[in-house]
Each structure stands twice: as C-alpha cells, then as structure tokens.
C-alpha cells in the first residue's frame, strides 16, 4: 500500500497529515471518533541527527499535552545515516533520545503504535519502530537488521552461505516474517480490510509490560530469551 492509500484507509479525508521532506506529521480522526497523532517517515528516509532531534521534539510536544491521544508512527525508513558528521555529532545520543521520547510519551499516557509499511533497518529500526508500544506491519514491509551483502562483509561469511542459511534460519535473516516469529511485530494487518478498524481494535486492547519475549517464544522464533530474562529476575530477587 502507498502512503496515500494507508492514510485514506485509516482516516478517509479526516486528517491533516502532511509530508515535510521525508517526515510526516499531523492528526487524523478514526471512524469511531478517536483522534490520533500521526508521525513518521516516508521514502526510505535515513535517520540522522537532524531528523532524530526534529522528530523527538514533536514527540515531546505531544507528551506535554494531557489529552492522552495515541501516536501512530508510520515507518518507511532506511538505516541510520552512515556519515562522519552524524557520528561526530554523537548519533547514538540522538537515536537514544528519540527512543526515550517515545517511551516517555507512552508513560505519559500516549500509547504508540508503529505501522511498518516499507523498510527499516539497524539503528533507525531500534530508535523508531521498535521503540513504539506495539509494532504492526503491512504485507510487503521489509525490515532488516542488515542486508545480507553487508552482513557477509562484516562476518566474513560467504554471501552464498548466508543466502542458503537464510532460507531455513529465521533468527538472522532479513524480512518481515522472521521479525514476526521473533516477536518484534505483533500483527500483520490485512490491506483488503479498512486499516481504521484494525487500528481501533488494537487500541481497544489493554497493554501490559513488554510482551515481545513471550510472543517470540510462542511463535518459536526466540525460544530462550523470555526464560533467561525471567530466571535472572528470579535470581536477583532471591539475592536480595
């Protein structure tokens, strides 16, 4: 689905979401009357220091209001911007700040729903999509930690070997299905039905804790993470 299709399927004409460069912002009204803030990226945007601080500022502006309106974060991004300038300025702080802003907004009563409709990768994926309270995706979304050719260069494993193993090993290979199995993506939405109803249904569900470890275990994509984390909590508690 294109960005215009997505906005129409969510809000009809009842929105003022605008694109400024590669950044999205505005508000929309759902059929049942619920209003949501909309933020996000389009056109496979790279997330550098300038984009991250502008977006974090918008998130904090929303967090400052006490209307409790949810944030819908639409994502079609690339990776973090890989440049000398971004690292000189301290990109790690800017991406961390964006993630913290989203988590803080959630604590302040503004639930966040990430909707992945295109790409996202590496540090940009962590700071935006994965920092939302819940992440959903549309068919055709293509998240990845790193593409296989780059992974081949970094790990010194031959590309052919990675391509072969990617067919049977969801834990490392790029792609939406693998991130569903790992528990990163809660739901894949059906583009044949109005997205508005699917968002309203999601917002009607209560939230509690971080469900991704349990999802990854139930789906078989991450069999150890939940148990290890729970054992550490139990041991630390017993240690006193």
């Amino acid at each position: 689905m294109t960005l215009d299709d997505i906005l129409a399927s969510l809000f009809g004409d009842a929105h003022d979401v605008a694109l400024d460069g590669d950044s999205l912002s505005g508000r929309g009204t759902l059929p049942q009357g619920g209003v949501v803030h909309v933020l996000g990226f389009a056109h496979r945007a790279e997330l550098g220091v300038d984009q991250a601080i502008a977006l974090a500022g918008r998130v904090l502006d929303i967090a400052r209001t006490d209307d409790g309106l949810p944030i819908l974060f639409l994502i079609d991004s690339s990776s973090q911007r890989m440049s000398r300038r971004d690292e000189l300025m301290g990109l790690s702080e800017y991406l961390a700040h964006l993630a913290k802003a989203l988590l803080f907004a959630e604590q302040a009563g503004h639930r966040s729903v990430g909707l992945l409709y295109g790409g996202s990768a590496a540090g940009a994926f962590i700071a935006s999509a994965l920092a939302c309270g819940v992440l959903v995706a549309l068919p055709g979304a293509h998240p990845e930690v790193m593409d296989l050719p780059s992974m081949s260069r970094v790990t010194k494993l031959p590309l052919a070997v990675l391509q072969e193993k990617a067919k049977t090993t969801p834990v490392f290979a790029p792609g939406m299905e693998n991130l569903v199995l790992a528990g990163a993506i809660a739901e894949v939405w059906d583009p044949a039905r109005p997205l508005s109803g699917q968002l309203e249904a999601l917002l009607a569900q209560p939230t509690a804790g971080d469900p991704r470890g349990a999802l990854g275990k139930a789906r078989g994509g991450r069999t150890k993470a939940l148990d290890i984390a729970e054992r550490v909590v139990a041991l630390a508690t017993a240690h006193g």
């Binding site: 988590l103 994926f125 962590i126 994965l130 920092a131 990854g216």
Partner: peptide
Amino acid sequence: VRLQEANAGELAISEIIRALVE
C-alpha cells in the same frame, strides 16, 4: 548486534532500552 542471530539481537537491544528506561 551479533549478526549471526541478528533479529534476536536487535530485539534484545530494544527490550533492554525499554527495561532500562522503566
């Protein structure tokens, strides 16, 4: 992230950030 288990590692980073902020 450990690329041989990239999806699990990426998700672990996100879970750590959430737990740290909480």
